[in-house]
Structure formats: structure tokens, C-alpha cells
Design a protein around this nucleic acid. Sequence first.
DNA 1: AATATAAATGCAATCGATTGCGCATTTGCA
DNA 2: TGCAAATGCGCAATCGATTGCATTTATATT
Lengths: 342, 342
Amino acid sequence: MNKQSEPTIHDIARELKISASTVSRALNDNPRISLKTKEKIKAVADSLGYRPNTLASNLRNKKSNTIGIVVPLINRHFFSSVISGAEDVAFKAGYNVVISQSNDLAAKEIKIVQSMFSNRVDGLIISIAMQTSTFEHLKIFKKKNIPLVFFDRVIPEIETDKIVVDDFAGGFRVTQHLIDQGYKRIAHLAGLQDLTIYSNRKNGYIEALRKNGIHYDESLVIISSLTSEEGVTAVKQLMKLPNPPDAIFCGNDTTALSAMIYLRDMGIRIPQDFGIVGFSNEPFSKVVSPSISTIAQPGFQMGQKAAELIIREIETKERNPQTIVLPTELIIRESSSRKGSQ
Amino acid sequence: MNKQSEPTIHDIARELKISASTVSRALNDNPRISLKTKEKIKAVADSLGYRPNTLASNLRNKKSNTIGIVVPLINRHFFSSVISGAEDVAFKAGYNVVISQSNDLAAKEIKIVQSMFSNRVDGLIISIAMQTSTFEHLKIFKKKNIPLVFFDRVIPEIETDKIVVDDFAGGFRVTQHLIDQGYKRIAHLAGLQDLTIYSNRKNGYIEALRKNGIHYDESLVIISSLTSEEGVTAVKQLMKLPNPPDAIFCGNDTTALSAMIYLRDMGIRIPQDFGIVGFSNEPFSKVVSPSISTIAQPGFQMGQKAAELIIREIETKERNPQTIVLPTELIIRESSSRKGSQ
DNA sequence: AATATAAATGCAATCGATTGCGCATTTGCA
DNA sequence: TGCAAATGCGCAATCGATTGCATTTATATT
């Protein structure tokens, strides 16, 4: 009983005693078919409840009208924002979006990417898994000349389009802001340094210190994978220093929050005694109290840009790999505002 | 230069001077092909960098190995959790997942659903748009016998699988909890009542009052679409009553938060003077202070269940529409805990 | 009216993989 | 050794839509 009889253009053709070619052309508004015939055909198509079989069309046209998106975890605010933005643009342009999550596992990522290739996606948008360290599975796309866009976590090994936020400027701005607010010893909870995003943030931090003539003290920088727990561990470690910091630039909002809660429980007042700034503008950073200053990453826009870029490449077949750096925005909230204003 | 020469089974066949049928069978591990031949074929396939063209296979098999998911907004914690759960299960079972968001617009939803049908998804998982009030576009799936699973926002008009959380029990439990904590006049910010989820929550609230012998006062129930602003408006209205409430059961966490902030700013202490409970367990509800008591909705699990259900139906062709009610969990946090414990 | 030209439609191959049926070769057993 | 059964593989049709080229039909021109 299943799918036995989806009407096809041949059914329409038979009904009207014409050829399937004509039906196909009519439904595609080909000028070679007379208006009268087109109308007849469309009427029959409607009455039969005809729905074009995109699979067949895709096979013939060697085009799937589908864009693949691969992220580490769908269920993460930043990534779902990117997906949302990309879907938005893609849908308007007539593309479907297939999504998979790597769970930050290289093995799964490889499977996913191969599957997407087999499904002949017209382009692939990907933020690679943390774990991923070989890139053969992605080079296929390059080799076959299928548009490939990296975002967020990018790698230098493959020359293709990349969309990133200006992490360096973000790190710089955060640090400068803390300096401006009068904090004297500014620590940094950095992320794993093999990921460009984190090393850039750290470099921005260092540069801001340098520009302000502040000595860069390595003991104030702690590198971790920035989980909530590691945030606490790091702060504990920092506060035990002979000369502890009075502010922290945290590599993400999660550690900013856990650090803040820890410090508060220790009786340290924020922002009066201690300044904290996070990164990413997670939804919660706005609503906790004190609210957390942070850097907004335009996830939705990144998704839009990525989709626009990839669709242009799909349709023009032009390839000139570019790296788009989206601006970051410093959002000043309570956790770092001790000088009047705000 | 594009896609001109993806190797096919015919290329492999030619290389080995055998037929494409044999190649196809070999690659699918058909027992009719000898081991020796299979090995030769697989070797050549590898050396040619052959990747099966899923489109062709799908067309021939009349099966896309794809599940469609439609949500109002991808970029919302609950929905992205569902998607994440569904992708998880689907991927393991060898299915792709295409996703679209309706933005709560009926028109877009209709387009999406039709497009998914044209793409011959093997099944559709959907949470309908608020705005949607006709269901013809969904009935197609029923008529064609393509598995259809509703979740979260379901409609009685179509007899198909539904996955919901026990909103009634949730509303009941929240209210009972507030009563247990000694709050006397409990208000309710309800969502639009044409959505089952909201009317069920309200009914649970009413039932809990009844069971405890508390008079149900309609002036304590305010219906809105539960935006942040409407939360504030509602609370203002409630507090102006001659006999204002001392607790609110909010239809979602967003209004719980905005109400809480408003009340706090009015100098009302939470939870001592006033109790608040939300619904949905948005990530922020745990980290704001005071943290917000709420009802956890197992989004990830819903997605998993939905995918499991739909895959079973796809593969067995059995259809016996069922409604799965997932349990809700009351998470007691600070905003409603005035009696010791916690 | 006859021919030239334009307009409308049809034929058949194609996209790449799958599969029922049949032929050929090998193996098994008496 | 002889014949049946088993094994291994190929032919050709199929899935549904598209399209270059051919053919038919209608319109225009002289």
C-alpha cells in the first residue's frame, strides 16, 4: 500500500495523450510550450495531486539543491543560531538544509562528511570537531570542486572560504575595557591553543596589555577546555597566587559564570572588588546577576553569510577562497562596570 | 570543470570488463557474487575513489533515507534539543535529517512541508507553527501513508503519532508545590489556550487548586503569548488587584524571569514574600539568581523518541498512531523554596 | 496555392544504481 | 562419465524528470 502510486509526469501525459517531455516543459514554464497546453497540463497536474519528484530531478540535473551543515553539537546556542541563519537564507534561495552533529568526534565527522558527499550536497558548511586532526575527508570537497565553507573553528590546512569572528579584536577589546575600568592585574582563562579562536583571543589579550604598557605575566594565564568545573579550578589556582588578579577575561561565558559564582561565594564583590568578562554572549549571561559582560558573536549572521557565500559559489561556479571576519561587539554589563555609567 | 566525472559503477565495470550489475551487487555484499570478484571490485572502487550516488539509489529504491524535521525556530533551546536528539538516533540508523523552521508562519510551514514531500522524505517530525490553523498540507502525509510524528504542539485534527510532555501533570505539580510551600494566592500566567500544551498546564493548575480546596479565582489567570514584556504587564496587572497573589505559576521561564525581575525591583523578596515557578527549564533558569524553579521538558529525549518511532514505522510499515506522554520533572530551585530543605 | 518560416510537440537517450530473469559455467553425486 | 543442481554473472528494464534533436503543425510570405 505504500507509495505505490505517486503520480508522475507520465501519468499526466497519458491522461492528455501527449508526451512526458511536453508535460515536463509545461510545468517548468518553458516558452516552447503554448499557453493553452500549459494550462491544460497544470489543471490535470492539480487534479491528480501531482508533486514533482525532486529525487529524479536532482539525479538528472546532478544537483541536489541541498546544503550540508555539520556542527559539533546542534543543541548549543551558538551553533543553533548559525544553523538558523543558514536555513533562513537557504530556504529563500530554494535550498534544503541537512544537518548533522559530530559530537566533537573525528570519527563521526568523517562518516558524516562522506555521507553528505554521497548525498551529493551542493555545498558544505562546517565547524570542525575539536578532535579532528586529519582533513582528508574534507579535501574531497576541495578536489571535486564542491563549495566548502568553514566557520568558527577553521583550519589553515585547507584553502577555502572561512567565516570567523574577530577573536583577536574581541580579546583586545575585553582587556582594554577591563584596563579602562581600573583593574590592575588581569588574568585570562584561555581555551586550548590549537584552536585558532582561542589563541586569537589570547593574543588579543596580550596585545592589549602590551599597548598599555602592562607586563604580561604568564602565571595569570590558565589554559583549559573551559568547562564550568575548570573555571572554578582555574580561579582557585589564580587566587592562591602570591599576587592574585583583580579581574579575569574568561574564554567563554560558562567559565565566567562559574568563576563569578565561586568568587561571590568567597565573599568577593563583583564588580567592585573583581571584574569579570566572558565571551560569546550566551543567553544566560544577560540574565544572571550580576549580568556578565561579554563579547557578542553574531551566530545568526554567520549562518546567513555562510549560506550566501556558498550559494553564490554553487550558482556561479566561481571559486576564490576568502576569509570573512565578522566584527565582534563588546557588551558591557554589570560584572565589569565599576566606573559610574552603565 | 564541475562534477564532470564522478566515477560510477559503470566505470568500475568497464575497468574490470564485467557488468555494472555485478559491481552493484558486489558493493552491496550480495551473496550471489563470489568473494574473489567482490574483492577485485572493491579494490578498483577504492582506487577510483568511488562514492555511491545516493540520489540514484534513492530514486530507484523509492526511499530517501531522509527524515524531515520542522520546528518553529531552530534557534530555541527546546527545539534544538529535540533536533539534536532526533539527529542522534537518525544518524545511527542511517538516516539523514533535513531541517526547516517555520518561524511560526503558516505560509512558510506549508511551503516547507510540500517541499519535504517533494523531496520524498521517508517521514516527517513536526511541531506546528502557532499560526497554523489548516492542516491540508499535513494530511497529504497521512493520505500517502508517510509516517508523521507531531511533537510538542500537536493537533487533534489529525490522527497520527504524537509525542508530548505531561503538561497537565506539570501544571498540577507546580501548583501543588507552591501550595506546599505555603503560598496562599497563586496566580497563573497562561499561554494562548488554543494550544493544547498551554491549556493542559492551566487545567493542571486548576485541578491542583480544586484538590486542595482552594477557590479558583479567574482574575488570577492572565492569558498572553508569554513574551518577556507580557510577563511584566501581567504581573503589574496582578499586583494591582485588591487582593494580589503571593505566587505565580508562569507558563514559561521567560515570563518567570521577567516577572521575577520586575518584582525584585519593586522590593518584593523572592521567595520569602513571593514564589515563582516557570516552565521548560530553559538553561538560564538555573543560573539566574534567585534560580528559578521550573518543569524540565526532556527535549533531547523527545527527539530521540520521535526518531525511533518514525524509523520503526518507516521500516515496518506498521501504523498504529499512538500518543506518547513523556513525564515532566519538577525542578525545585530558589525562586519557590521558602520552607527550609532544598 | 506553394513554399518558407516559425511554433508546438514528440522521440529517445540520459542521470546512476538496482534487480528479475536467464544464460553459462562449475560443482556434486551416482 | 553424465546429468542435475548450484553458483556466478550479464541483459535490459526501471525509478521520474530532463533535454538535444527531430518531426509535425500552424502561420506567414510571395
